[in-house]
Design a protein around this nucleic acid. Sequence first.
RNA 1: GCCGGUGUGGCUCAAUGGUAGAGCAGCUGAAUCGUAAUCAGCAGGUUGGGGGUUCAAGUCCCUUCACCGGCUCCA
Length: 641
Amino acid sequence: MKVKLVDLNKVVEVDHNITVFDIYSTYGKELLPDALLSLINGELKDLSAKPDEGDTISLVYAGKEALEPLRHSVSHIMAQAVRRLFPESQYTIGPAIEDGFYYDFHLPRPLAPEDLPVISEEMDKIVKENLVIVAEKVSKDEAMNLFASLGQNYKVELIAEIEDEWVTLYRQGEYVDLCRGPHMPSTGKSGSFQLISIAGAYFKGDEKRPMLQRIYGTAFFTREELDGFLKQREEALKRDHRKLGKELEFFSIEDEIGAGLVLWHPKGAMIRKIIEDFWRDEHLKRGYGFVFSPHIGRESLWQTSGHLSFYSEYMYSPMEVDEQKYLIKPMNCPFAMVAYKSKTRSYKDLPLRWAELGTVYRNERSGVLHGLLRVRGFTQDDAHIFCRPDQLKDEIKNAIELAQYILETFGFHEYSIEFSVRDLENKSKYVGEEKAWEMAGEAIEQSMKELGLNYKVIEGEAKFYGPAIDIKIKDAIGRLWQCTTIQVDFNLPQRFNIIYMGPDGKEYQPVMVHRAILGSFERFFGTLIEHYSGAFPLWLSPVQVKILPVKPDISEYAENISRELKKNKIRVEVDNREEALSAKIKTAQHEQVPYMLILGKREQEVNLIAVRERRKGDLGAMDLLKFIELVKEELPSFLKE
RNA sequence: GCCGGUGUGGCUCAAUGGUAGAGCAGCUGAAUCGUAAUCAGCAGGUUGGGGGUUCAAGUCCCUUCACCGGCUCCA
């Protein structure tokens, strides 16, 4: 048969059932020593893969496209090491992931951090042994018998679920694993790796199954790349909002108050106020009105909304008031429904866009709390939009555009958009008529299409009452956190029986869109701190200018300058400590204050100020008015008059 | 909630089962200083809480709370 060898730029005639390795042994021996994988018709394969008639083949070397197979191969080496150290262990799955790989084991005893170097040492041995990695195609039955005889029940279960008649086994020395591949040609080709951490993980993510032990690791082709990765990870930890939030006095979460309950300190609260002001102005511009609602409400309200049956595990226990049960709100929506119902609405009133900074409380399970990013009490930048079906698409579009504008304004240029739809195989999880779901889904898809957005469709992620668009942003170490959510809901309008009068004098049911742009102030603030590493841009900085008098005797001049800046709505602080100038600068630098004004006799005599910028350093002396102009120039346009 | 780990002054960290200590921050005083730390002194602790083992517990055991890394779940 004929195959095309791309890297030799020729078509050659070879036997059937011959491996890529053998083909190149004949036609391009000099290419083989560094080759790790093959690329057949654009698909990564083993070097030992057997091409078919007419296939296009090239060799793959150390590099980006081989990184995933490398990591996957290293995960096998790790599993082999664990099997050697714990012969009673069962191994389950061990894929490559974004930053490395993991493998899940069922072990006779819990792993401790001290086990990692031991495992890593054993891995080094396996690398040194340079075992050839061999792929082998066997029938499902054969594979199941093999793993059953090895006592590997998890593997047997995994094989049973495979639909194909044939499965691939990979062997290296005494180790055999069920795997799709492809893999490195031998254990000697494993680059530089590092075991990172131990964690618990449920088999197949199922809480009802026993918990397995997961080992995370990573691998790169070179030591330098690995070191770079580890270094970067270390740097990212310095951006952790929990660390910066404490250092910069933005917020705290105190044992004395309770887990997941946030204290906003003055500096953090100032940033929140600036965000809120911007948020309100932007909503006003876009035709929103504002509402507020109470923190608690009668139990019956939550019966009507359906939260008691669908959401009760997250709700705090009721409190008794006048022999009535009241619940603290986990969501704002029922209040908006009741407000809507307070009078008869006309089709001419719609759309109604009601925005609300609503503080909600959810009893999140203890293990999921995480700084500001996952808390038990938080304020949503919520809104409920009531509209006619024919307005739905535009309302969704407006909401997406608003989200994009706001996220971009805060410097988030990378975010992941997800379209959460029903799990079609399990429709009983959802309420509402088929037609309504279709209409909502179409409206969402159409608006995203019109906006030209790239998005991922996530099946089974829809809310029980309707499909949603979710936008996720990243924290310092790349974990995604949901901020924006836009959800179409036809359940609540029905449950609360809200209507509007149509032009024909008949009653119709409005569609409701729930949406939050920032998501919650807590979570958004947390990611924002990490995004800017605590060095907020001028417009968001709680203190924009810090005045540093060189000597205390200059304080009157300093106060005058301070007053003048405040008149210009510039947030300013004076460092009146009896400290050396360099100490004051150090403090201000640590506080990430954008501008420092150094005032001494020299400046006072000529009525100037010496300006220091936090990154550029000394900008020299200038006139106060010029400085004010400079500051105003740096503000975003929506803050300039 | 589950698995593993960690809890020592406000912060960062010491302390073989044998007298809880340092630096920074704070306070007091001195120094009056020009672009990333002036000097000295003082104060600050039921070692997360509770229970146990021991002549003796920060250290060992149990329990509880919180935090960290994950899993599951979510804004």
